[in-house]
Amino acid sequence: MINPFRPVGRGTLGAFETVGAITLFAATGVGRGLRGPWYPRQFLRMLVEIGYYSLPVVGLTAIFTGMVLALQSYTGFSRFEAQSAIPTIVVISMTRELGPVLAGLMVAGRVGASMAAELGTMRVTEQIDALSTLSTDPFRYLVFPRILAGLVCLPFLVLVADIIGVMGGLLVGAYKLGFPAGEWIQSTLDYLQPEDVTSGLVKAGVFGFIITLMGCYQGYNSGRGAQGVGTATTQAVVAASIMILVSNYVVTEIFFSR
């Protein structure tokens, strides 16, 4: 109470402790997972869960983002007769930034939450304990397939988001702004660099790792009872979202400074 720095110090120590615990968790999950035995059924189930069932949400996000991008850049760029840059603006914003970040955030909400809830429930109902008594390592059986699926699915989802986003822009460009569709597509492709897409896909991989890691970490370490699972779910989504935004800057910086 007397020392005002005490809560700050304690908070900082707590934060370091959490970062350490998450790092150890990730290292254990990946390290043991790589050494096998592997569980392809679990992996396939997660591919469907993350990759396939996220398509609607990611697609909807992407198409409206592409549409609004076209509309907004028109409002801005027509002021100095730069309308011809709009298709390029749409595709670059989409592939480099908005595709990965928005898809990442949407998937964090959807998959991160359900993963934390599923593992948290398994923890609370002792299913994770039961795995160990049945000669099965929860890190290999539960954690690794999820992280791997996140790593694979997010780049795929972002690629889909890129394409749909560009199509959304094209829709608005052609039907509302009166661009000839052929010209729009031409200038989209003309100025697009491979790195625009690959940097976005690398981000997506990082986000996929973060989302599934946080979902697993929070669920695996869930507190007791329904309240514990609720807290785990919220924290998985909040932590993953913040880490996505931070790592987004870091990855951009790395690509930018090359």
Binding site: M122, T125, E126, Q127, D129, A130, T133
Partner: peptide, 9 residues
Amino acid sequence: MLFQGAALF
């Protein structure tokens, strides 16, 4: 082990 709450998957 048979768990208290069965702990079925």
